[in-house]
Design a protein around this nucleic acid. Sequence first.
DNA 1: TATGCCATACTTCCATACTAGTGAAGCATA
DNA 2: TATGCTTCACTAGTATGGAAGTATGGCATA
Lengths: 225, 225
Amino acid sequence: MDPARIVISPSTASQVHDWLRKRVQRGDLPPGMRVSETEVAAAIGISRQPVREAFIRLASDGLAEVRPQRGTYISRISVSAVLSARFIREAVEADLARAVALARPADILDRMADEIACQHRADHAAKVEDFIESDDRFHRLLAQAAGQDAVWSDLERLKAQMNRLRHLSMRVFDRSFTIGQHQAILDALCDGNPDAAETATRAHLRQMLTEVPQMAAAQPDYFTD
Amino acid sequence: MDPARIVISPSTASQVHDWLRKRVQRGDLPPGMRVSETEVAAAIGISRQPVREAFIRLASDGLAEVRPQRGTYISRISVSAVLSARFIREAVEADLARAVALARPADILDRMADEIACQHRADHAAKVEDFIESDDRFHRLLAQAAGQDAVWSDLERLKAQMNRLRHLSMRVFDRSFTIGQHQAILDALCDGNPDAAETATRAHLRQMLTEVPQMAAAQPDYFTD
DNA sequence: TATGCCATACTTCCATACTAGTGAAGCATA
DNA sequence: TATGCTTCACTAGTATGGAAGTATGGCATA
């Protein structure tokens, strides 16, 4: 038997944490919403303690805010946090793109093309969730192609706030435009042109600079800073 | 009275977390060491629950590993995590350096020069802690000078593993060499030369590429991956 | 000697009870 | 009406006991 298939059953607290995190990221639990240890515990049918520990983890993720003796609230989306995460992504992915344009690993570039096709399909079918997941895979593949898979894992922690915003914005903004930018990046990579790849990547990620203020203005209750 | 001076007394759990985190980063609690809820609680004179919650936070920081029904251990330093954090820092600080070289905010450049002087003093006095703190301030000023203070806060989370390694390596490697690299960066910034600033920054951060394997080879028990 | 079983002493995890801080509603007072 | 006080329901924080899982050493057995 494959030793990797032996999984220790995860604790209640970490299961609750996973559940809450997904709900926050998808926007089911909107920014500013109050959550209560007691209520969540009662809803699940467990004691307060595991829920409390899940809240602590959620706070570490920057997705919740525990105010002692007052209550726990889903964090509002910090505009400055999103912008600084965006800055970091631009710098990092620009370097990744340069590296990939030089290495040009055929198999991974093929898979990136597959993802773009997937994004076209999701766009036409108006499946926002599918689109976002494929978008993530596309960027992850970029890191993988540069032999820096671990880098993407680190970025994901920073992306927590960005992800929530994306679930709002993807319903509003033109997805086909995003796909075009992905295609431009891939074209430059396949051409083996580092400068063009970097330029296309930076242009793609700077798109957010115009979108974030619009989102924040449209739903000010969800944002802070 | 200044409203900012009103501080709500932090919970026991978060105080324990701060205390443990500092001890891990300084190397007082070495990688691989076993820690126990019961023992820590008894040592401080409190119940197990706050200690347990501190452990959860520590695990979120990537500094500890809680193994259910088995024990809690201080994380070994992940070589790949350090390298990917380094990759991210190089990309980000290269962009920051370019921006600063164009803006050239005189006041902050002065403070960077002050930090270099501080590093000389700490080096001669062999005060490792002082040196590391000034090193951090130098890099934070770089972000500040680019108007991206929040970026440095994000990087600090990634630096958790790197920091521990630094407390080991700073005792070993030539600190005056590091100071020289800082000076080269600052010179390029003051010259208003973005290309030179980027080059100097990248060279500085690539230094780690040679140091990490040496550290890992010297103390294999402290590392993993 | 080698193997398998079991008692035991740990560990974290969860449930429960209690403490202490917060805030809002109600009421008395000026 | 406006102000200040009390009360009370509710919050998160902490203490403690016990449940469930794990590792280890001793001992009987082959």
